[in-house]
Design a protein around this nucleic acid. Structure first.
Lengths: 342, 342
DNA sequence: CTGAAAGCGCTAACAT
DNA sequence: ATGTTAGCGCTTTCAG
């Protein structure tokens, strides 16, 4: 009859106690190398793997971390942002030898049942929360639990949290100043939803720059929803107002806008110059290539994991907001190479 | 002093035993409604949540399922396929009240350590394996364990597994016949990697159709790697051979190819007709809109979850391969509307 | 309908 | 360096 493969059984076969086997498995130094060899041999030949749940229960730590993505179902398919972010998070999670659990909120009815699972003790050691809508109750809810969490983005109410963000405002401001420096006067904005912190900050930053340059937008402002088609529609809607340059709050929307410009028989950057945000579209994927405010997405993911780990193990205890700089990557769509005679 | 919140403590406060509380939590019918009310009240006011690890250990089931995506890092960012698939899987996982854990293999060194975590008992009840390279040892490895698993795609060696796939071959064949019916004779193929089953099957299917139509491809075949830029390069490389129509094994690559055609001063579909595969690009995202063999990606994900659940709970015990039909969605890029005078 | 009691497989403090 | 022991919080017979 087959015995269940556990510490006790491995110990029996190796002629040691279960504690010793546990020590070997966990790399405890207090084991003679002779014993260690023997135990490792038994483990190898039996294919023994420790039972994760038992280990979690006894050690009160799961080595699992959760990634919560609420209400972003539409853009998740369409925007390379989340793929990149998940990649950065996943890679780092592997690196620190943990496991990643994904909590994707789709429709609203999911929400409460998922939330309660997120904070269920013994499932994850901590969570990363991303793409939170401004005023999302999730943050407050998490504050009320003792589940460690890190927010990606800027939580709206300014309350103390651990967070990782990029300098959306500064990046968008730089875009405005760059376009103004190129001589554009009738600038326009295609913004992202003001329900997200990135949307709000990029809008503010662009307006900062516009104001600094002594310009204004008049009515040349349209709202997109991160999707390519929303960018196209916004651009179509904007064309009658004859902007000479436009800042678009995401690459994905910019790709849509490029289509609208082309369809209207106009040329970017000659008729309309364009700067977008993200830096996630390769130069050879669009004509013209996109001048874009690049954000280090996978670094953000990596940092969020490391920060969360520090919060979990108690090495960081005072809320900190990490912000990564953004960088204006100049390519063709802004027309500055043309302007410089290149 | 604060007591730990567990079954025992809830029972103490409600004046019942821990067993009764457990019954209430798990919806056991053998509890008087009076007792049930009282216990539920205590649970609500204390915010008690059962300890997942303890539950897993005692019940020998985690209610967690794993999604394994090996070696697909490049396309994960770029191709809407994985977003859609993850969405379908995640939605269904929520629906059946389970939790989803993500195992993303990045670089090779990750692999063995992740694999061993995947099959670690007490972590997940079963896994869905996707995007497996042909000949990937992972399938064989999983066969050697008693971890339930479902493969998305077609495992290469034909051994018995539970799998969910789409009719790649039939769909690609339909594409060939459609183009042939439109009168094209110098057809071309931009294929996907032959290291993947979808790549192989779409290629075979297209060749089936070409042969049936009494045509051949001569040397008008190029290989892409699923990315947009590979599609662009392949198309550029193909143009000197003057194809009058091309089948491209994925939408993403087709978008790249469209750019190459445009840059060459040619027109799709007038100069080159095009049919691609996936049906994942909205009609308004490209000009012309893509005629594409649509596959029901999120349904595949949903079915995989349900099948896996059946395997886990033992209600399905004989390996079955589920295949979803594909559907040729005719839009502009194939030129059939022009041909019909529409 | 409810309670008592025996584990699930592991960790960690303690003892030797 | 190794073994002993007492839980971790839950489910699940088994009694009653």
């Amino acid at each position: 009859m087959e015995r269940r493969l556990n510490l006790e059984e491995i110990g029996r076969r190796a002629g040691v106690s279960r504690s010793t086997v546990s020590r070997v498995v966990n790399g405890d130094r207090n084991v003679s190398s002779k014993t260690k060899k023997r135990v490792e041999a038994v483990i190898a030949e039996t294919g023994y793997r420790p039972h994760a749940a038992a280990r979690s229960l006894a050690s009160n730590s799961t080595d699992v971390l959760g990634l919560v993505i609420p209400s972003a179902v539409e853009t998740l398919f369409d925007d390379p942002y989340f793929g990149r972010l998940i990649y950065g998070i996943s890679r780092t999670t592997n690196e620190v030898r943990m496991t990643l659990t994904l909590f994707l909120f789709g429709e609203v009815p999911d929400e409460s049942s998922i939330i309660s699972r997120v904070v269920s003790p013994g499932l994850v050691d901590g969570v990363i929360v991303t793409a939170t809508k401004m005023g999302d109750p999730l943050i407050d809810y998490l504050r009320g639990t003792n589940m460690p969490f890190v927010v990606i983005g800027r939580p709206d109410d300014g309350g103390p949290v651990y967070s990782v963000d990029v300098d959306n405002r500064g990046g968008a401001r730089a875009a405005a100043l760059h376009l103004a420096g190129l001589g554009h006067r009738r600038m326009a904005l295609i913004s992202a939803p003001s329900s997200t912190s990135a949307g709000v900050d990029r809008r503010k930053g662009f307006l900062d720059g516009i104001t600094e340059a002594g310009l204004n937008l008049e009515n040349r402002v349209r709202a997109g929803d991160w999707t390519e088609s929303s960018g196209r529609r916004a651009m179509e809607d904007l064309l009658p107002d004859r902007p000479d340059a436009v800042f678009i709050a995401s690459d994905r929307m910019a790709v849509g806008a490029l289509g609208a410009i082309r369809d209207a028989g106009l040329s970017c950057p000659k008729d309309i110059a364009m700067v977008s945000f993200d830096g996630l579209v390769a130069p050879d994927q669009t004509v013209p290539s996109l001048t874009s405010v690049a954000q280090p997405v996978s670094k953000v993911g990596e940092r969020a994991v490391r920060l969360l780990k520090s919060v979990i193990d108690g090495s960081v205890t005072v809320p900190e907001c990490i912000s990564f700089p953004t960088e204006l990557v100049i390519r063709e769509s802004c027309g500055s190479r043309l302007a410089n005679g290149m």
